[in-house]
């Protein structure tokens, strides 16, 4: 790798994604068989992304903006490896941690304590690391003794606090945030916002999708603007945001 590329932690290289949509989603063998027999399985092709390329340097906070359906979420999914791009490739230089939609990795019969380890394991953290960070997570979530009861008894605010604490107290190398979470009461919201800012300024590489241009202006170093499934503009925050607004 050349010298200029040394700091690149994430490289999206000419990625295109094609979805094939059957007329209806076929979920039964009978349907599939009748459709096949009548030769009616038609696929509509749909390019969700076309030739998207950009790279992210270590420690950068990159915002992704664009209108609904421009391909923001698909881009994030390809970057985190959930979707395989039809063409093109993604280079990842570190562990990618998505900020999970609240509680999607939780099991409601387990206690908060057990869920911290389960969720941490899903996000790819080793055991020793989670053990070391456990007290910090607990303190941040302000759950106290409730940590030892099954989370099905939690209020929604408690669940969100737990989820947010797990996602951010541990230090991910690349954090993917799909819309910033505003969770809990006012006090916790302030705390979580401060934590996000701390993460973003503290060397973590962040990919950040938002519709809130003020947040983007406040937090990001660079912005990628997606429109019509392809990159319309990449560059300085002010420049791109101003152009986007018009």
């Amino acid at each position: 790798m050349s010298d200029a590329n040394k700091n690149v932690i994430l490289k999206v290289d000419d990625v295109s994604m094609r979805f094939r949509m059957a007329n209806d989603r076929v979920t039964s063998i009978k349907e599939m068989a009748t459709l096949l027999l009548r030769n009616k399985v038609e696929f509509k092709e749909f390019w969700a992304l076309k030739n998207v390329s950009f790279d992210v340097k270590k420690g950068e906070v990159v915002g992704i903006i664009g209108r609904n359906g421009a391909g923001k979420s698909t881009t994030l999914k390809i970057i985190s490896g959930i979707l395989k791009p039809t063409t093109g490739s993604v280079y990842r230089g570190g562990r990618i941690v998505p900020m999970l939609e609240l509680g999607s990795g939780f099991d409601h019969d387990l206690t908060g304590h057990e869920n911290i380890f389960l969720n941490g394991a899903v996000l790819g953290y080793p055991k020793e690391y989670l053990k070391a960070k456990y007290d910090e997570i607990l303190a941040f979530s302000e759950l106290g003794d409730f940590i030892n009861i099954p989370i099905r008894n939690y209020s929604s605010g408690m669940l969100m606090r737990l989820a947010f604490s797990i996602a951010t107290v541990v230090n991910p190398e690349i954090l993917i945030v799909d819309e910033i979470l505003s969770v809990g009461d006012e006090n916790f919201q302030r705390k979580s916002y401060a934590r996000m800012m701390e993460l973003m300024h503290g060397g973590t590489t962040v990919l950040f999708v938002s519709h809130d241009l003020n947040q983007i202006r406040n937090m990001c170093n660079r912005v990628v603007w997606l429109e019509d499934h392809t990159v319309k503009m990449i560059g300085d925050v002010k420049e791109v945001c101003d152009a986007y607004k018009l």
């Binding site: 387990l110 380890f117 389960l118």
Partner: peptide
């Protein structure tokens, strides 16, 4: 390894939890 351990123990715990 850690994820596998967590998932196995979760399933096992939940089975008889209540």
């Amino acid at each position: 390894e850690f994820l596998i351990e967590q998932l196995v123990s979760r399933d096992f715990k939940i089975k008889y939890k209540r």
